[in-house]
């Protein structure tokens, strides 16, 4: 085998492995994070975004709700409301359990795109 052939093979192997690694590690964008205010979709973000760590201020009925968007997860912090139940929920990374700040009428939900069930009862 010539030097050029080895290079081509190495290139093919690298691309093949890179492709497989991409499929394996990037995780499919199988969901969205939906932030609703007063029952209407206000923001929609992809669930997965590598390296994302954003803080979003959402205006609710009582005051501000800060939504922290991570890669594949979301949580609510620093809420202007008396009970702070939504903060206690912590990070959420799967559909089925929305984070709700009822006094502010703000909800943060992960909606699945590829689960093999439609709803979760709990």
């Amino acid at each position: 085998m010539k030097r050029g052939d080895v290079l081509v093979l190495a290139l093919v192997a690298a691309i093949a492995l890179g492709g497989l690694a991409f499929i394996h590690f990037s995780r499919p964008d199988e969901g969205v994070i939906v932030i609703e205010v007063e029952g209407e979709d206000q923001y929609v973000f992809p669930l997965f975004e590598p390296g994302r760590d954003e803080l979003l201020e959402v205006q609710g009925r009582v005051g501000s709700v800060f939504v922290q968007l991570g890669d594949g997860r979301v949580r609510v912090i620093n809420v202007d409301c008396p009970d702070k139940l939504c903060e206690a929920v912590g990070w959420v990374s799967t559909p089925g359990r929305p984070i709700a700040c009822l006094p502010n009428r703000v909800t943060v939900t992960i909606r699945a795109m590829s689960e093999d069930y439609d709803f979760i009862t709990r």
């Binding site: 959420v92 990374s93 799967t94 089925g96 359990r97 689960e115 093999d116 069930y117 439609d118 709803f119 979760i120 009862t121 709990r122």
Partner: peptide, 19 residues
């Protein structure tokens, strides 16, 4: 038919034990 996942009561939030 609709498919409804039933939450596993012993695991943290993420796992459905039945459909």
């Amino acid at each position: 038919p609709w498919r409804i996942g039933i939450k596993d009561p012993t695991r943290h939030r993420t796992h459905q034990f039945a459909v």
